[in-house]
Amino acid sequence: MVQFTLNGAVVALEVPDEASLLQALRGPGGLSGPRFGCGNELCGCCMVLVEGVPRYACTLGAGAVAGLAVVTVEGLGTPEAPHPLQAAFLAEQAGQCGYCLSGILVSAAALLERDRSPDEDAIRAALEPHLCRCGSHNRIIRAIQGATT
């Protein structure tokens, strides 16, 4: 059993000792936002915020977040009140298949928490761990820039 704060609510998830945070979130956590891509910290599809810092959920043990705050894309906003990034991504049509976007959105949210007006170089650096096979990078960068205004 691992207890932590997930998207603002305290949860206790029963997971095997060897379970990754991603397995805990998608299994007993019931979330679908963080995705399994590579399992080796190479694509960023599984990225979540742990205490406000982007972390790969595919390799982070679930027990490592005991007592900590974890935020997934589901915790950024709601359909009724989307996070400014989510609204900007929709307005810019920044995704094609969308598989990578949950990880990109949480990393971008962490960036905007640190720097309310990042330049393009800072945005590209924050997104470096993410792989988007659809080639939506330019629209993604424009969307992040649009969320800052």
Rank of each mutant, 00 (worst) to 15 (best):
R26E: 10
R26D: 10
P28F: 13
G29K: 06
L31I: 09
S32F: 12
S32R: 15
P34M: 11
R35T: 10
G39W: 09
G44I: 13
C46G: 05
M47E: 12
V50Q: 11
E51M: 05
P54L: 03
P54W: 01
A57L: 06
C58N: 11
C58Y: 07
C58D: 10
L60N: 11
L60F: 09
L60Y: 07
G61F: 08
G63K: 14
V65Y: 08
A66G: 08
G67L: 07
V71L: 12
V71F: 03
T72D: 06
T72V: 10
E74S: 13
G75R: 01
G77F: 01
P79M: 10
A81I: 04
P82R: 03
P84S: 04
Q86W: 01
A88H: 01
L90Y: 08
L90C: 08
A94S: 13
G95T: 14
C97F: 02
C97R: 00
C100I: 09
L101G: 03
L101Y: 06
L101S: 06
S102Y: 04
S102N: 14
I104T: 06
L105A: 15
V106D: 04
A108V: 07
L111E: 01
L111C: 03
L112K: 02
L112W: 00
L112V: 02
E113C: 04
E113V: 06
